[in-house]
Design a protein around this nucleic acid. Structure first.
Lengths: 140, 140
DNA sequence: GCTTGATCTAGACCTCGCTCTAGATCATAG
DNA sequence: CTATGATCTAGAGCGAGGTCTAGATCAAGC
């Protein structure tokens, strides 16, 4: 192992940034905002050491963020997990609510997609014909 | 007709807001930002009158925004249309590029969805069993 | 020891996309 | 004529989600 000897499976902030796609700035920001389940461990010199647990959690965070979950909800989720067992149904509810939002988003995007596709087709056709006037008339 | 007599098919800003889902503030903002194809007509008293053409354009804008097109791109698109015929391939390119982004977004969302679904299933199962410890262990 | 690069903290700053305010004007119903 | 409500302009403000800076410290290689 090059990076660690006794530090089994613990990563620096830079390594975690690489692995999660978040910037080191964002990682520190997320921590400050209480989006992580536990406090990140530190070396004697004060540098952060992330466990594989931390990284897994962050990867989930990334997925939830990508799908539009607000940081506030993510924070809430982290708090629930931090509090430990006993609130699983609340966690379940949070995730399920989000899944519904994701479904709605997918639907909306598919609708947009078809509108765009149609518009593209109109343009392509007009271009092929070499005529482009009257394109954005009310009936287009 | 209640609202118009000679003003065939022209709407007030409030009516357009209702029809597009944009706020009147947003409508004025869009206009200022040059997101509309033409300048909106005004009454002698200075109030905006939107044509059905304007409304159609705005509805397209709404769809493009909903699917994540930045205002800057929308502005660019409006400029192209404003310049008139001769740049259709550029418009086509703009739309097609956006469609690709939408496709990518849909894909990403579907991936997120499946991650969430799986997570929900894990929780549900644990809840059903009445055991919740060790839930967020690295292997979960 | 010295240099180089990664990391540290606190806090200022930024972009995006609106939203809201103030103070005035217009338009319509009673 | 008056009251009410919609609209006007210019510009300030806001929430989300980071990003960046300054100045210091740590750690590794030469």
């Amino acid at each position: 192992m090059t990076t660690s000897e006794a530090a089994v499976q613990s990563l620096s902030i830079g390594e975690v940034a690489e692995r999660t796609g978040l910037s080191v700035h964002a990682l520190r920001f997320y921590e400050r905002e209480g989006l992580l389940v536990g406090p990140v461990q530190r070396t004697s010199g004060g540098r952060r050491r992330y466990t594989s647990f931390d990284v897994e959690w962050l990867l989930i965070c990334v997925k939830l963020r990508e799908s539009g979950m607000p940081l506030a909800d993510l924070k809430h989720f982290a708090e629930l997990v931090r509090r430990g067992p006993g609130n699983e149904s609340e966690r379940l509810h949070l995730l399920d609510t989000h899944r519904q939002r994701v479904d709605a988003q997918i639907q909306a995007l598919e609708e947009c997609r078809s509108v765009i596709t149609w518009k593209v087709a109109v343009y392509t056709e007009h271009l092929a014909r070499g005529e482009a006037g009257g394109l954005w008339a009310p009936t287009t």
